[in-house]
């Protein structure tokens, strides 16, 4: 998870602190199989109604930005993953290299 995503003007989008409970609750619900999620290239993402955002002063645009997967950003991120694995020399297990390829393939779909 990432409490530190920034929106326009460099402002933090998520209030953080006690409100992180909302994210924790989604995680616990997922452990118990009692809450929903949407499949994305990077993993299961909470849908708009899967996170309990009641009584929180957060506009729809901010929520969208918090959950957004920007393909251009992820192209860079994937390249960074490769660069990082390469920097470790030959010690990266094949399973992880495979995971990176699968992640890239999911973006290409």
């Amino acid at each position: 998870m990432n409490w530190f995503r920034k929106g326009e003007g460099g402002k933090f989008l998520w209030p953080g602190f006690g409100d992180n409970m909302r994210v924790l609750k989604w995680i616990i619900d997922r452990c118990e199989g009692s809450n929903g999620a949407l499949k994305s290239p990077i993993g299961w993402l909470p849908g708009l109604h899967d996170l309990d955002l009641a009584e929180l002063d957060l506009d729809r645009k901010s929520v969208d930005e918090l959950l957004e997967i920007d393909h251009e950003d992820w192209k860079k991120e994937l390249a960074e993953h490769k660069k990082f694995f390469d920097s470790l020399g030959g010690v990266v297990p094949q399973e992880l290299t495979n995971q990176r390829e699968q992640l890239a393939a999911r973006f290409a779909e």
């Binding site: 995503r5 994305s40 990077i42 909470p46 997967i69």
Partner: peptide, 12 residues
Amino acid sequence: GRRSNTMPLVFQ
């Protein structure tokens, strides 16, 4: 982690 972009609030 502390990421100002790229990473969503949470995913599984």
